[in-house]
Simulated scan of single mutants.
Amino acid sequence: MKDFKPDRFRYDGTEKLSIDKAPTKVDDLYKDSDEYEDILRQQAAEIDKLQDELYAHNRFGLLVIFQALDAAGKDGTIQHVFTGTNPVGVKVASFKRPTDEELDHDFLWRSWRELPERGKIGIFNRSYYEETLVTKVHPEILTQSQRLPKESTEDLDKLFKHRFKAIRAMEKYLYQNGFPTVKFFLHVSKDEQADRLIARIQDLEKNWKFDEGDVKERNFWKEYQQAYEDTINKTARKRAPWYVIPADDKKNMRLLVGRVIIEELKKIPMDNVKPDKERFDELQTLIDVIRKQ
């Protein structure tokens, strides 16, 4: 794999994201399909090993959030990057349109219920960030569907300011309690999204992935781009960074995400799970006991 520095795509509040300047494609990180598969397997094995250490240490968890426009490749990225990770140590939650029960609570409630336990990697396929993205593009959701007090929706700028503040506080709280957060925006171009949506229509076996609503949402492309830029700039912090990953090439995207996950797991202090020679020697005395039972 070519040299790759995750910081190239990292936003942690030290500089602002200009989404128009963020690339949707980079030079290939692999020379052919065989090398891509080899790198993907190596990354999967490394993530699995680091997750084992996280599980054994049992002091920290990692929350990984995936956000993207339709057809950017969230599902496939999660599947490929974590395909070799022990299922016991991974928890995946997908967030769709809020249910009646979820609408009867605050906008963060359903996310709190799905947070990972210590020792696990929690993966959010979409997240509470939908409430600063979709609702910003379609404010009628707030005023007509979310059962909010009238005074809360009279000034939507103020409402979003409060939501950004609540999200920053939540992620800071999680970090302080041993749950760092890493967030991915899979940045796909409008042309590439069009090609993928058309491919879903033309392939009988992929029709199930197609939603007519995706076509309507393309009319709000600029609004979504602005909403993502605002959301990332308002919530990017050193302890809860965003990574804006070029998504026009799915293979590159998966390798980039995998490398970031590895680097973020390595930052978690887990020194006390290193091999203990004294403990090893003690356990050897039990081998004969087991054999004689």
Rank of each mutant, 00 (worst) to 15 (best):
T83N: 15
I268L: 06
A56E: 12
Q144D: 15
L17A: 01
R118M: 10
I78E: 03
R200I: 04
E171Y: 05
E53C: 10
S152L: 03
H162P: 00
R259F: 00
G122T: 08
M253I: 01
K21S: 14
E53K: 15
D248E: 07
T24P: 04
I65S: 09
T77L: 01
R237M: 12
V273K: 02
D32E: 07
R126F: 05
E223P: 03
P275T: 02
R110V: 07
G89I: 03
D203Y: 08
F95M: 03
Q79H: 13
L197M: 12
I167D: 08
E192H: 06
K150M: 04
R239E: 04
I232W: 08
H138I: 00
G119P: 11
T83R: 15
T285K: 15
L50N: 08
T235H: 11
E263G: 03
R168S: 12
F210Y: 14
E229G: 05
A56C: 06
D211L: 11
K267D: 10
Q225T: 10
D75A: 11
Q193M: 09
T132L: 07
L148S: 09
Q226T: 12
H162T: 10
N252A: 02
Y129Q: 06
K91P: 00
I167T: 07
D157M: 09
L174N: 08
Q226K: 15
I201R: 14
H138S: 02
G258S: 03
K234L: 02
E15F: 10
T24M: 06
K158W: 02
P180N: 11
D288I: 07
G76Y: 05
K74D: 05
P23E: 01
D20S: 14
Q43C: 00
D28S: 15
S189E: 07
Q284T: 14
H80C: 04
P246S: 09
I287A: 12
K183C: 00
T285R: 14
Q144W: 00
D52M: 12
A72Q: 07
K25R: 14
L62Y: 06
T181R: 11
R10N: 04
Q43T: 01
D100C: 00
D12G: 07
D211P: 01
T235C: 06
G258P: 04
F82E: 05
K216Y: 10
E217K: 15
Y36F: 13
D191W: 02
D20L: 10
E217A: 08
S18P: 00
L103G: 02
F179T: 13
K277I: 11
A45Q: 13
F60H: 14
K96F: 02
K49H: 12
S127C: 05
T231K: 06
L29T: 02
E278R: 11
R239F: 08
A169F: 04
V289A: 13
T24V: 08
Y11L: 14
E131Y: 05
D27Y: 01
S33H: 11
T99L: 09
S145D: 09
P6F: 06
R254C: 01
V64H: 12
Y175F: 15
V137Y: 11
K251I: 00
T153Q: 06
D195N: 14
K25I: 10
D155W: 07
E102P: 06
K21A: 15
L103D: 01
V289E: 10
H162G: 11
K120H: 13
A166W: 05
Y173H: 14
I201H: 09
K165A: 10
A68E: 04
G178I: 05
P116V: 07
S18E: 12
A93W: 04
V289S: 11
